[in-house]
Amino acid sequence: MKVAIAGAGAVGRSIARELLLNSHAVTLFERNTAHIDQESVPEATWVQADACELSNLEQAALQTFDVMVAATGDDKANLVVSLLAKTEFAVNRVVARVNDPRNEWLFGEDWGVDVAVSTPRILASLVEEAVSVGDLVRLMTFRQGQANLVELTLPSNTPLAGKPVRKLDLPRDAALVTILRGGRVIVPQSDDPIEGGDELIFIAPAEAEPALHQAMQIQ
């Protein structure tokens, strides 16, 4: 996969390293010469240019990339990069960093964002996930489809214990994608039984969350 990252600060470089470890091709765009540090991510292609400038993206042939990651520390810049990537170059997947949670409402389809990642919101969700049993915790929102990644930890005495996945009465638009059980990550099959203490990861639209909560028999 060919990935462009706008912003080569600490966040952008960290994303690049992870992607390179997974054998993806990464190009880092950075306008600030003080942030150009090719030795920190030597396997990446570095471009000293402002990713908010259409001509710079044209020169880099952004239309040949699979993913654009807008990872600067400026929400306005991330929105501009996202919009250009989607509307001018038809990049298939645009992921944008949200620095200020108050701006999160902007990071949607109208600005070309497929996935908005808010670090403060993710950290808050992880805190909630660590202490919440029986409640739906929203981990991430996929803006393009208006679907959410949500987590629910079953209590040890759940009435669902022993029930196979196929018999869960889930809302039509909700899907169980993962079961976390102890140190295991389980891709659920129809005959897999539910156990008390399971952490269940679902994808569901916001309007289906109340019905999902009720279906899991959590009051």
Rank of each mutant, 00 (worst) to 15 (best):
L136Y: 06
S125D: 08
D114M: 01
F107S: 03
L106I: 07
T64K: 11
V117L: 08
N99V: 03
S118V: 03
S132W: 08
G108Q: 05
V117H: 07
M68E: 06
T72C: 09
E53A: 13
V95I: 12
K86H: 09
G112D: 01
A70E: 01
S82I: 04
E129H: 12
P101V: 07
S82E: 05
Q59H: 14
D66G: 14
T87L: 14
A116C: 07
K76V: 15
F65N: 03
F89T: 07
E88Q: 14
D50A: 06
P120R: 04
N103L: 00
D74S: 12
V98C: 02
N78E: 02
V113S: 01
S55Y: 12
E109R: 12
A51W: 02
F107N: 06
T64D: 13
D74L: 09
D110A: 12
F65R: 09
W105V: 14
L83E: 07
S118C: 02
L84T: 07
V98L: 01
D114P: 04
F107R: 05
L126W: 03
W105Y: 15
N92Y: 13
T119L: 15
V131T: 11
L62V: 03
A90P: 02
L54F: 12
T72P: 06
G108N: 10
A116D: 03
R102N: 13
N78G: 04
S118Q: 06
A96K: 02
V95M: 09
D135W: 13
V95E: 02
S118T: 03
D114E: 04
K86D: 02
D135H: 15
D50L: 07
D50N: 11
N103D: 00
V80H: 06
L57P: 05
G112S: 10
L136K: 08
K76Q: 15
E58I: 15
D66V: 12
V131P: 09
D135S: 15
A124N: 11
D110V: 13
Q59F: 11
G108P: 02
L57K: 04
G108L: 03
A70C: 08
T87A: 15
S118D: 02
S118R: 01
L54G: 11
D50G: 08
V80C: 05
V115Y: 09
V81W: 01
L126Q: 02
